[in-house]
């Protein structure tokens, strides 16, 4: 457990936070790590707040509980900041990553006195520019990779290209946009 990195995702049903959490686990797995990715399940439908989790470790992961004291929190939808206690249990030496166009200074008052690091990325803008649609989960995945440093950028991009090629085998035209979304997010997260 000691060397296990724990990440909690907050999103809304339909935004792809669960998929991003599972993708992060997959990426970590492909770099030789042990990883666990899982959503917290309820009957929530499209739009409802949802939570998903990742554990990443160099040794076998046996714990099957939810995550209460994460090192990192990812907020895929900033409107959740007002309705979900996103920093609950978040370690002070950890960090929170938020999808927003706002600056850190503007966001900070919404974090209930959280003293750890705050990262922002405008995943909506990146997604609109690269994919033409609002799929924030792809840039958010890249941003959390950057923030956590679980994998170096190049390996990450190579791995993702591989999975996109597999996932989008029937519509290869979207691969380029998705790769672009990842690259921009890696660059723009601050």
């Amino acid at each position: 457990m000691k060397d296990t990195l724990e990440i909690r995702w907050h999103g809304r049903g339909g935004q792809g936070a669960k998929t991003a959490a599972l993708l992060l686990a997959e990426v970590a797995f492909k770099t030789g790590k042990y990883a666990q990715g899982f959503p917290e399940y309820g009957p929530e439908r499209m739009g409802a707040p949802i939570t998903a989790y990742d554990r990443i470790s160099d040794s076998e992961i046996r714990v099957h509980s939810n995550i209460y004291d994460p090192e990192f929190v990812v907020v895929v939808d900033e409107t959740l900041l007002e309705i979900v206690d996103v920093t609950a249990g978040l370690k002070e030496d950890g960090a929170i990553l938020i999808n927003t166009a706002k600056s850190k200074e503007e966001i900070l008052p919404l974090l209930k006195g959280y003293k750890g690091k705050v990262y922002t990325v405008d995943a909506r803008k990146i997604s609109m520019e690269t994919l033409g649609k609002n799929f924030p989960n792809t840039p958010m995945l890249a941003a959390i990779v950057k923030v956590t440093g679980v994998i170096d950028d190049e390996t990450f991009l190579n791995e993702m290209e591989g999975s996109f090629k597999h996932k989008f085998a029937r519509k290869p035209e979207v691969i380029e946009g998705n790769m672009q979304a990842l690259k921009v997010a890696l660059r723009e997260v601050k």
């Binding site: 686990a25 997959e26 990883a35 666990q36 990715g37 899982f38 959503p39 076998e60 992961i61 099957h64």
Partner: peptide, 12 residues
């Protein structure tokens, strides 16, 4: 197997 805990969690 345990619903969601293993059924829906990806693991190595």
């Amino acid at each position: 197997q345990d619903g969601f805990i293993t059924s829906h969690a990806v693991m190595n």
